[in-house]
Write a protein that binds this DNA or RNA. Structure first.
Length: 329
DNA sequence: AATAGAGCCAACCGCGTCTCC
DNA sequence: CGGAGACGCGGTTGGCTCTAT
């Protein structure tokens, strides 16, 4: 193991240990954390009798000792999620880790740098047009003009049916330019934030239109495909668009109303199958406002009917929501 | 069996942000 | 308001393990 674990173990002075943690140190930290819980990390280090800095204790706890950590190799599904979230978030490892319960940012970062990066590189050189369900080989998160994968899901009049046929994680965005709601500025904020955070969305709305989707845009989480955005708005000025509805839907829901519930409010419907373990995520949410089945929708409704919508406050409440949590930072 | 190189991963480092006084 | 300390994050390092020769 690391030299550091031995090189400073004999120091009886105040010098703090560095390097790998010994089993004894792990025990001390684990016992202390179990008995006292998390507090100030420098206190933890001192009170647990560890000659480590608080920072080192924190890292050890978070990356290794925490009881809720998942051990072992990443499952194929986790790998897909990592690739997907990296395409959306870039190297924001902590945010990616927050979406993979039991995994740490360090773990994901290491996995990405050692395995996935290499794999994607190989994919792009051997089969640039490979079309498995998760081909990100041509996706560059730094390029705002990416259109990755196929757009077949956007050329039908039957949206729900196409969702079924396409991929599991479609995220329809529905915009309407006619709203005069008092909260339109906030809606614009949301829209602009969406535009900002979805690198595939060109800021100039230079997005290929798909037939039959006026006032709607579709973002495919799996492939990063954008459908049409507001074909009626010809001036291509994002500031003239108002986000009347932002619907995050469960595409396996055969009820088309999931995507077309027009009552002049911004809506967010939870995607129930976004994660296999969405329930655990939802259940772990600190705030019960976020529940499976659309309580988020109610929250939006409440806020908007008051004419005031505190985006930051709302985002605090939806940090467990896999997509919107991005906007809380 | 010995060696070199590649890969993996735990831990450190530096920096930005937050919180408290 | 500003400074100090704590915290959290992403990048990097370096040592162990694995694999090929």
């Amino acid at each position: 193991m690391r030299k550091g674990s031995e090189q400073s173990s004999s120091s009886k002075n105040n010098k703090l240990r560095k390097g790998l943690w010994s089993p004894e140190e792990d025990d001390k930290l684990m016992n202390y954390m179990m008995n006292n819980g998390q507090g100030c990390w420098s206190d933890v280090a001192r009170n647990a009798g560890l000659q480590r800095c608080g920072k080192s204790c924190r890292l050890r706890w978070i990356n290794y000792l925490r009881p809720d950590l998942k051990r072992g190799a990443f499952s194929p599904h986790e790998q897909q999620l990592i690739i997907h979230f990296h395409s959306l978030l870039g190297n924001r490892w902590s945010q990616i880790a927050a979406r993979l319960p039991g995994r740490t940012d360090n773990e994901i970062k290491n996995f990405w740098n050692s395995t996935i990066k290499k794999r994607l590189k190989q994919q792009s050189t051997t089969s640039p047009n490979a079309s498995d369900d998760h081909d990100y080989s041509s996706y560059d998160p730094n390029n705002n003009n990416n259109i990755v994968g196929g757009g077949e899901g956007f050329n039908s009049n039957s949206t729900t049916q196409q969702f079924h046929q396409h991929h599991l994680h479609l995220m329809p965005l529905v915009f309407n330019s006619s709203s005069s709601s008092s909260s339109s500025s906030m809606q614009n904020t949301v829209l602009n934030t969406l535009i900002d955070r979805l690198p595939m969305l060109d800021h100039g709305l230079n997005i290929p239109a798909a037939n039959g989707f006026n006032n709607k845009g579709f973002y495919d989480l799996e492939n990063g495909v954008i459908g049409s955005l507001d074909n009626n708005n010809n001036n291509n000025n994002i500031n003239n668009l108002v986000a009347e509805e932002v619907v995050v839907g469960d595409n396996t829901n055969t009820n088309t109303n999931t995507f077309s519930d027009h009552d002049n409010n911004l809506k967010v419907l939870e995607s129930a199958n976004y994660f296999d373990d969405i329930n655990s995520i939802v259940n772990s949410c600190n705030n019960n406002k976020i529940m499976k089945g659309g309580v988020v929708e109610n929250l939006f409704h409440e806020e908007l009917t008051l004419g005031e919508w505190d985006l930051e406050e709302f985002m605090k409440d939806v940090t467990s929501f896999p997509f919107l949590a991005d906007f809380s930072n």
